[in-house]
Structure formats: C-alpha cells, structure tokens
Simulated assay, not measured.
Amino acid sequence: MKQEWTPVDPRYTHYLQLHALVAMGVIAIVIAVQYFIARWGAVLPAWFWSFGIWAAITLLLLLLWAPRRFMYTGYCVTDDLLLLRQGALWRAQRGVPFNRIQHVEVKESLFARLFGLASVVIYTAGSQGADLEVPGLRKADAEAIQHRLLNEMAQQEFEGEGDDI
C-alpha cells in the first residue's frame, strides 16, 4: 500500500526562518554585550569581525535549510497509524499506532500564531513526554487531525467495552 504524504503548510518555511533569525540574533547580542562589558569602548578586534562573517554565513545556511526542512516534512494518516517524516540533512520517519495514543493536543507557540500555524502533539502509553509532534499545520488542519485521532480513540474504547461481555 502506497502512503499518501500530506505536506505541511508552506508558511512553515517562514516560521523556521524567523525562528533561526531570532536565535542567531540572541547569540549575536549576547556576544556583543559580553565583548563591550569586557572591553568598554575598545576597537573591535579582527576575530570579532571574523565571527560576524561566520554568523552571516550561518544565517544564510539556516535560511537555505528552512525551505529544505519544509520540503521533507509531511505526515500520513492511515486506518490505524499516524506517520511523520522530517529532516533537512538527516531524515527520520516515525509512526504512532492509534491504539497506543493516550492524549492528543493542539499546540500554538507565539511564532507559530504569527503565521497561523499549530502543531498536533501526540502522547502515548508508557512515554515520558510527547511521542510525536506534527509541526507546521494550519490550525484548522491540526484540529481536524486531533478530532480524527480522538474519534479513533473513542471508537477503540467502545469496541473494547464489548469484549468484556
């Protein structure tokens, strides 16, 4: 059986780019503050400018990485399994069978809300945290997946009650 992969929302690329820019901006601010505290008013040394070039190259790589990560991120919902594939350089494919799902929630971070995105977080039996998180979904799609999984859980619970008789 061939799996039909559903791509995440294209705005996920912009979300990843913003996330990378903020992270690199925080790193740059921390380094600059540390430098100016240590050498108040001194002229910046050559290594600092070299680091600046390195940071610019890193930002470019992150901006190229985000579209690639988007391109390989997708999910597939079968009759009894939810699959997720992710990766830019290293790719992974993970799945959770419906009968192991304990709890499903829709999560929206601050940056995700800026782009109208959400994630579906799936918790399974016997795990310490979320076993699977499908990122970069439109909120309506995330809620639809959540409702489908909850319905599957309820259906399995109903079928399980008939076995006791």
Rank of each mutant, 00 (worst) to 15 (best):
94 R>I: 06
95 G>M: 09
95 G>W: 00
95 G>P: 01
97 P>Y: 05
97 P>H: 07
98 F>N: 02
98 F>V: 01
99 N>P: 00
99 N>F: 04
100 R>M: 05
100 R>A: 04
100 R>F: 01
101 I>H: 02
101 I>M: 07
101 I>S: 02
102 Q>D: 03
104 V>Y: 03
104 V>N: 04
105 E>W: 00
105 E>D: 08
106 V>K: 04
107 K>G: 06
109 S>D: 05
110 L>Y: 07
110 L>E: 03
110 L>D: 03
112 A>S: 10
112 A>Y: 00
113 R>Y: 02
114 L>F: 04
116 G>C: 06
116 G>R: 11
116 G>H: 12
116 G>I: 07
117 L>H: 07
117 L>M: 05
117 L>E: 05
118 A>I: 05
120 V>M: 12
120 V>R: 13
121 V>I: 13
122 I>T: 11
123 Y>V: 12
123 Y>S: 12
127 S>L: 14
127 S>I: 07
127 S>G: 15
128 Q>L: 15
128 Q>H: 11
129 G>A: 15
129 G>K: 15
131 D>I: 13
132 L>G: 11
132 L>V: 14
132 L>F: 11
133 E>H: 12
133 E>L: 14
133 E>T: 15
134 V>W: 05
134 V>Q: 10
134 V>H: 08
136 G>R: 09
136 G>E: 13
136 G>Y: 10
137 L>G: 03
139 K>Q: 10
140 A>V: 09
141 D>G: 02
141 D>L: 06
143 E>R: 11
143 E>P: 00
144 A>W: 01
144 A>P: 00
145 I>K: 04
145 I>W: 01
146 Q>Y: 00
147 H>I: 03
148 R>E: 06
149 L>C: 08
149 L>K: 08
